[in-house]
Amino acid sequence: MLKRESVLKDQGIQVYNGIEFEELSHIPKINLRGQSDNKDFMSSSGTILDILLPTEPNISNVTVNAKVIWLGPNEWLVEINNENKFKEIFSKLQSTLNPQNTAVTDLTENRTIIKVSGHNLYTLLAKFMVIDLDTVLQKETAVAQTLFIKVPILLVRNHKYSEKPSIDIHTNRSHAQYIYKILVDGSHNLDF
């Protein structure tokens, strides 16, 4: 069996200049594709996941077991926080949904998540991306797909309005170290 390795070598939470970094590796993830105007697909996947797939762009829906992130009008990323639950949900999705017009793909080993948090987080991220974070991540459930320098990433807002900023950066495993090192380097001079 494939030995699972964390990209950042299980360093735990690292703190640099008030910014906390943590890799959330091996969180089960499913890429789900289907037409949002297909009622059968929407209701079946909603029943299996116990949550409706968001049809509003750039938001996520969250339950106790899963987080469903909008990626496009016909594409969602499902993050499941329990390995056993993941196996159950994944097999149910595969057996229930019509394979001719839907796709269920396990992305667990393909992507990793770098969780970053801290009061100066938006200042840090703004160094490396053109996107206006205050506007794009305004909603508490906001998500955004964009470029980090030239690397495609998915930003998922975790914090509520009253809390310190906390964002999950979803990226390919092969880009994770690159992003992590740039963020750590950038966190050294946030006091300007």
Binding site: P57, N58, G72, P73, A144, Q145, T146, L147
Partner: peptide
């Protein structure tokens, strides 16, 4: 039309 205003590089 879906994501709003973004830079051309995307």
């Amino acid at each position: 039309p879906y994501c709003g205003e973004r830079e051309q590089a995307e």
